[in-house]
Nucleic acid binder design. Structure first.
Length: 337
DNA sequence: AAGACGTTCAACCGCGTCTAC
DNA sequence: AGTAGACGCGGTTGAACGTCT
């Protein structure tokens, strides 16, 4: 056990390396190899601790280090490996020739982690995020995940899988949020500050097309049934979302009217929004949302270009007479979970 | 133009593991 | 088997740089 005492030595230089020090280190290792890192600084004429020398060499001076931006393939590989290995940066770096563990770690913390968070994916567990912070970040999440579903082939399958997962998050969050909103305004006379038109027209614009959502579900289904093998069992069919036990349908009077289609059901959560479970074992209620029932031709007959399958929610008359546009945080603050 | 704020990444720190004795 | 030196790993820091206001 015991820590290396080398860095405790007084009078040893710390901080950024000078070109002269780099030169000395390179020359020495070229001639003798690094050998014992502890003795290397003295032998090489460097006033550094062995640890510092090792770090400088392995992370910066080594001749086989690849510099420059990470390619999309590399990023995808990092995400994939991280989902399997966690923060085992040195292990991950062995799969990326020319990249150091430090470099990968930095890139993860500064780029990839944020990317996943924006997509609604927990960078630690690589699962959908189910916390309220996610809800607070909904606009960013929606924008990111919506654009991700339209991604070209630039991201590899690992990223695509996580992007598709994020789309399910969209559905779940929206459903949960609407449940809360409905519960707080059962007679459609919502708080005057709540403007459903604004809600659906701005922050939730990406969700206005249920066909997109169903498409995302199909993609996810295909991925889960395909090469990733991450599902714990059969996956709900493309037109069926299986819900955890605590999900239930609202009484009809609390549901938004669906134009010309009284059989259509949307899902609402009874309390706090949670996420779709990919595991059917904890599911009892299965509520179908049949794609064929969401015929945009039927729904949009009375509406123009802005019309979508969700437009009937506009009929809830939740518009703010003052036209105030609420941000998500303000909305959340008004909701008593 | 300049200060505030945010981002990046090289380098450090401290702990766990390995290994020689 | 126990101990201590050495190494490697992952988390954190802080200076440099970039962007915004």
């Amino acid at each position: 056990m015991g820590r290396s005492p080398c860095c405790d030595e007084v009078g040893v230089k710390k901080g950024p390396w000078t070109p002269e020090e780099d030169e000395k280190l390179i020359e020495y290792i070229k001639k003798h190899g690094h050998g014992s890192w502890r003795h290397l600084p003295r032998n090489a004429g460097l006033n550094r601790c062995g640890k510092s020398c090792r770090l400088r060499w392995t992370n910066y001076l080594r001749p086989d280090i690849k510099r420059g931006k990470f390619s999309e393939e590399e990023e995808g590989l990092i995400i994939h490996l991280h989902s399997m290995l966690g923060n085992k940066w040195s292990l991950i770096s062995t799969k990326l020739p020319g990249r150091t563990d430090n470099e990968i770690k930095n890139h993860w913390n500064t780029h990839l982690k944020k990317k996943l968070l924006l997509m609604g994916i927990d960078p630690v567990t690589h699962r959908r995020r189910a916390d309220l912070e996610l809800l607070a970040n909904l606009p960013n999440l929606l924008a990111a995940s919506n654009s991700s579903t339209r991604m070209t082939n630039s991201w590899d399958s690992a990223l695509q899988f996580q992007a598709d997962t994020a789309n399910l998050v969209q559905v779940q969050i929206l459903q949960g949020l609407l449940q809360v909103l409905m519960a707080s305004s059962p007679n459609s006379n919502a708080s005057p500050n709540l403007n459903m038109n604004n809600l659906l027209g701005s922050s939730l614009a990406p969700l206005r097309n249920i066909a997109d959502i169903l498409q995302a579900n199909r993609q996810l289904e295909a991925l889960l049934n395909g090469s990733f093998g991450l599902a714990h069992g059969s996956i709900p069919s493309a037109s069926t979302i299986q819900m955890p036990n605590n999900y239930q349908s609202l009484p009809l009077q609390n549901q938004p009217k669906m134009n010309g289609n009284e059989n259509q059901q949307l899902l609402f959560h009874s309390t706090t929004p949670s996420l779709v479970s990919a595991s059917p074992e904890n599911t009892t209620s299965v509520i179908s949302l049949k794609q064929e029932q969401i015929n945009s031709n039927e729904i949009s007959a009375a509406n123009s270009e802005s019309s979508t399958p969700i437009d009937p929610w506009d009929a809830l008359n939740l518009s703010d007479p003052n036209g105030a546009d609420l941000g998500w945080k303000e909305i959340l603050e008004q909701i008593s979970w």
